[in-house]
């Protein structure tokens, strides 16, 4: 492998703001990043971090203020590069007067597939994203989740080497999220590179070989998910219900939250078994035991806190 799949160096984007569009605001600040061939790469960051901006720059939809990027060794200026990539925009919207099949047919024509090949491919990919039954329905009648699926289909229709997905799980129900996860894993199995953005840590944790964390347009770190975001257990959470006439053991009183007969306590991992033993003794019914992990929100919250103290006046614009 001579060149990395994606090579971003010093990519910066300023947007004009204000009525006269004179002032500039930096939405992406000097991003340098490499994604290797065959990886699933997670692009993490809260809303407004600059993820979509980065993807639009890579797709040539907007142009950088400075910096360059190469995809499979080709400059992003070069439209020929687009033969090898697929892109799912954030909250995708397509020609709503077309049916799902017609939309895919339109895009397939652009890649120059023959009529037979187009028909065959469209059927296969609609099946893959679970829309086989909706092929003939106009997109204006599609739900958000269905549009997301069509979006994924059009992104992978032409067997691209690299697939860029902007928030692919958003707008999907739990089942849909699982299906998308499976598709991403399939793509990796087929040897393709997947670059996807998300603000949900668990998605990244489950799928990614590596992640990058972006905050306020600045790269915070790149690495394996566990290295970047501490996956350590914070402790264990126990939910239980007290039996009739039972009182909460006094040693838990100060750390339990009680609602009616239900109680919730957090204990360090080492104390788990002694606590369960004690609960059994006083005949409490244990409802659940689960591990406590930091959420991405906790993580970002920590980062934002640090940013705020480090440099004053950073505008955080959550949309």
């Amino acid at each position: 492998m001579t060149s990395p799949a994606i090579e971003i160096s010093g990519l910066t984007k300023d947007y004009p703001v204000g009525f006269w569009r004179k002032r500039m605001r930096r939405s992406l600040d000097n991003l340098t990043l490499q994604v290797e061939e065959g990886e699933i790469f997670g692009f993490l960051g809260p809303n407004g971090a600059g993820k979509t901006t980065t993807l639009k720059l890579l797709m040539g939809l907007i142009y950088p203020t400075s910096g360059t990027a190469r995809v499979r060794g080709r400059s992003i200026d070069d439209v020929a590069m687009h033969r090898e990539i697929g892109y799912l925009p954030e909250q995708p919207y397509f020609y709503d007067y077309l049916t799902a099949r017609e939309l895919l047919d339109y895009f397939a024509r652009i890649f120059g597939f023959s009529a037979k090949e187009r028909g065959e491919r469209i059927a296969r990919f609609l099946e893959r994203v679970g829309l086989a039954d909706a092929a003939g329905i106009q997109l204006r009648k599609f739900s958000k989740g269905m549009l997301q699926r069509v979006g994924i289909a059009q992104a992978i229709l032409h067997d691209p080497r690299i697939v860029f997905l902007d928030e692919p799980m958003s707008g999907l129900d739990p089942l849909g999220r699982r299906e998308v996860r499976d598709i991403i894993l399939d793509l990796k199995r087929e040897g393709r590179t997947v670059f996807f953005s998300t603000h949900i840590l668990s998605d990244a944790e489950m799928l990614c070989d590596r992640v990058a964390v972006l905050l306020n347009g600045k790269l915070q770190g790149v690495g394996a998910p566990g290295d970047i975001v501490s996956m350590e257990l914070h402790g264990m959470e126990i939910l239980f219900e007290l039996g009739d006439g039972q009182a909460l053991p006094r040693r838990f009183a100060d750390r339990a939250t009680v609602t009616g007969r239900r109680c919730r306590i957090e204990v360090p991992e080492a104390e788990l078994y002694p606590v369960i033993e004690e609960l059994r003794r006083c005949e409490a019914r244990i409802l659940s035991v689960s591990a406590l992990r930091p959420t991405l929100e906790d993580y970002f919250f920590g980062l934002v806190g640090r940013e705020k103290t480090a440099s004053h006046g950073v505008e955080v614009n959550a949309r």
Partner: peptide
């Protein structure tokens, strides 16, 4: 305005 161009221009269309 409707961003239908995003998916189109990410294809090899100049």
């Amino acid at each position: 305005e409707r961003r239908t161009l995003y998916s189109l221009l990410s294809k090899p269309v100049k």
